[in-house]
Design a protein around this nucleic acid. Structure first.
Lengths: 209, 209
DNA sequence: TCAATAATAGAACGACCGTGCTATTGATTC
DNA sequence: GAATCAATAGCACGGTCGTTCTATTATTGA
């Protein structure tokens, strides 16, 4: 009812959100280069110029889509992990959420993984944005490793950055097996690898230096 | 001298090889979708139709490029690893070569990694070819793990496929750190992760089940 | 050397790309 | 309800895409 006066969502933002919703879905399976104005216009049922006006350029459209991807990852994977105390418990929760967030968002693949391999050798704003977000996640992991060391859960010999490096490797291998092999064992492989990572960090003789 | 009569290399194969050389280089940094007829024609200094005639379709061009990539990997990484005896030694050599082969071939990134993320959700001959080659490599790794188990180097509790899964993860993380972060520690991270993988497989209490 | 044939070039096609312009429709405010 | 401004459509542009057809040049084999 009190939707008049001081209404911010000026209708355009709704359609913009609808566009980005389709763009995110598209980027997951087809990549960010396939986010063409024409195809998105067809999928949303609007005109090319009408859609284009919301972003001003294809690059802005890609950046906006990446922002939305990050927003959903934050909402679906990162924020829920904060429910667990910092350290191994939060690492475990973050890991599980990291593997499941695409499915929870109704995506068939991980847009961040697509973005990484599409832009890692292509200098520009997209590359910078992708690298920045991945670094943020790595730092979040490393921070929890540090917390685990301080609380005595992990050995002091563990290198937080090494841990983050290996954790990303497990996730990457998991997404590969899932989309390339459709291997039913994939989930268990990832779980086992993560368990081994944790176990090695716990024992003082860990070679995760 | 006896280059007349029965000469097989009918000149066209030389230009085809020259095209594929540029195509491989292009696929490494720009991806396989960027293998456009026009850009390759410009880079090789020939006409679009002249280049096109060598392949008949873009998809055939992509498949031929992938074949050439695999050929170089085999030559630069796989075959040399056979110099070491099957088991941990060959695994170690294969791992090192796997990380270095792109540099040895003068490539700035790994075309196989590009191909994987470009086609893993795109049904068709390219996807099938990529999946087939990755499976081949996984099986090669798993085979050496089995050899290591039989020779007593590895614990019998080790699962060869789990080992291959984790090894791929390390390589993937390494290529990411290299191209996205330009992290100088990347090589050491990969080496440490591999060492941990080997160590866990050696001890009978390995959780790499 | 000469015919046969392989290799390449040229021009053109319909389709789609990103982007700018100008209308026109729709919503918000008074 | 009229004025205002945001939101969208229509149309056109130059460019590149993959592909086809027809010519022209190189290379080959006798």
């Amino acid at each position: 009812m009190p939707s008049h006066h001081k209404r911010i969502a000026r209708k355009g933002e709704e359609t913009r959100a609808a566009i980005l919703d389709i763009a995110v879905r598209q980027s997951a399976t087809q990549g960010f280069d396939a986010l063409t104005i024409g195809s998105l216009a067809a999928l949303t049922g609007m005109s090319k110029s009408g859609l284009f006006a919301h972003f001003g350029s294809k690059e802005e459209l890609q950046l906006a889509t990446l922002d939305e991807v990050v927003r959903r990852f934050t909402e679906t994977a990162y924020l829920p992990s904060l429910a667990a105390p910092a350290g191994t418990q939060r690492l475990n929760l973050l890991f599980v959420n990291w593997l499941l967030w695409t499915e929870r968002c109704g995506l068939k693949a991980c847009p961040m993984m697509s973005a990484m391999s599409e832009f890692d050798d292509q200098p520009g704003p997209m590359r910078d944005a992708v690298a920045h977000q991945m670094r943020r996640l790595d730092r979040e992991v490393a921070g929890n490793v540090r917390a685990a060391i301080e609380s005595g859960e992990f050995s002091g010999a563990v290198t937080p950055e090494q841990f983050a490096f290996e954790l990303f490797g497990i996730v990457a291998a998991c997404y590969r097996n899932h989309s390339l092999y459709q291997d039913a064992e994939t989930g268990n492989r990832a779980k086992a690898a993560f368990q081994r990572l944790i176990d090695c960090a716990r024992s003082p003789s860990a070679s995760t230096t």
